[in-house]
Write a protein that binds this DNA or RNA. Structure first.
Length: 153
DNA sequence: CGTTTGACTACGC
DNA sequence: CGCGTAGCCAAAC
């Protein structure tokens, strides 16, 4: 009986998560990284910075094969943009697919998280796989308790 | 087989 | 708000 390499399991988890992203929505590399528990032997603050890069590696593998079971085009960077080389065939394919799903880009080629951002799957789905809920990329709604607006009177 | 690079991101200037 | 840097895994050179 052989133990699968940690890296293989990590990739599988990443792809599993990406499969949950609904059409017309997007998720960031950082969000996916946060959903996966910090691997053994790695400091949490270190994983915070490196995790997204591992997610990028996992995505690159399926992007190259254009794996149809993984909607890799719904994964973007924290700025809301496409991270593939601008003008390249994969980048164009990603943008075309997103626009076909109704996702729109602004004048800076960025996507509005408030409209198209994804905050993760159901709690049940997460709990069954021991995964965590990512932070939302949407701008937080103003708390009713806190004075949210500067009153001029 | 040692180096370099990478679909990234948080943080300090 | 833009730019440079660290991070220490994997895959490509």
């Amino acid at each position: 009986m052989q133990m699968p390499p940690d890296q293989a399991a990590y990739y599988q988890t990443v792809w599993d998560i990406v499969r949950q992203v609904p059409a017309g929505h997007v998720v960031t590399f950082g969000q996916i990284a946060v959903m996966i528990p910090v691997p053994e032997g790695i400091e949490p603050d270190v994983y915070q910075r490196i995790g997204p890069r591992w997610v990028g590696n996992a995505m690159n593998a399926v992007t190259f094969r254009d794996e149809p079971t993984v909607p890799w085009h719904r994964v973007i960077n924290s700025k809301g943009g496409i991270s593939l080389e601008e003008g390249s065939a994969p980048a164009t394919r990603q943008r075309t697919r997103l626009e076909a799903e109704g996702v729109r880009f602004d004048s800076k080629d960025l996507i509005d998280f408030d409209v198209f951002g994804w905050d993760g799957p159901d709690d049940d789905w997460l709990q069954e796989r021991s995964l965590l809920r990512p932070h939302s990329m949407k701008t937080p709604p103003p708390s009713p308790d806190e004075p949210q607006q500067l009153s001029l009177f």
